[in-house]
Amino acid sequence: MNGQNRKDVLPSMTVDIVLKKDQKTGKLTRGIVKDILTNSSSHPHGIKVRLIDGQIGRVQVIHSN
């Protein structure tokens, strides 16, 4: 799953996000979702989330646990 639909992203999921500072390079950061910050049902660049370590970015990959 690519993380563009809000219904696919749930708290406690493991995801790869792209941080604002890494958008040009596309470097991904892996973590566990704490909060979903995007209110709309979808977003073309990925749903914005806060990880449990406090980092904020857009979901690029959802990992099945």
Rank of each mutant, 00 (worst) to 15 (best):
V9Q: 02
I36A: 02
N39S: 13
R30I: 10
K20G: 10
K24E: 14
T38C: 05
G46W: 00
N39C: 13
I52N: 15
G54I: 03
G31A: 14
Q23S: 14
D35R: 08
D53Q: 00
L28K: 09
K7D: 11
S40M: 10
H45M: 11
V18T: 13
D53N: 02
K24A: 11
I17N: 01
G3W: 03
K48I: 08
V33A: 00
G57A: 00
S40I: 09
V61P: 05
K7M: 11
L19Q: 07
L51A: 09
T14I: 14
Q55H: 01
S41Y: 07
P44K: 03
T29H: 03
S64E: 08
V49A: 03
K27Y: 15
N65P: 10
P44T: 06
R50E: 02
N5V: 10
D8K: 04
V33T: 07
V15M: 11
S41V: 11
H63V: 01
S42H: 12
L37Q: 01
V18F: 04
R30W: 12
V49Y: 00
G57S: 00
R50N: 03
G31K: 11
R30Y: 12
K24T: 12
S41R: 10
N39F: 11
G54N: 04
I17G: 06
Q4T: 14
K24H: 15
P44M: 06
I52T: 13
S41M: 08
G54R: 05
Q4P: 09
R50K: 11
R58N: 04
K34E: 12
G57K: 01
I56D: 01
H63Q: 04
T29R: 15
V18C: 15
I62T: 06
Q55M: 09
K48S: 05
K48F: 02
L19A: 14
V9A: 02
R6W: 03
D53G: 05
I56R: 02
D16L: 12
T25G: 11
T25Q: 15
D35K: 02
N5Q: 13
R58D: 12
K21W: 10
I52E: 12
M13L: 09
H43S: 03
K20W: 15
K7R: 13
V9D: 05
P44W: 08
L37P: 01
L19Y: 06
S42K: 09
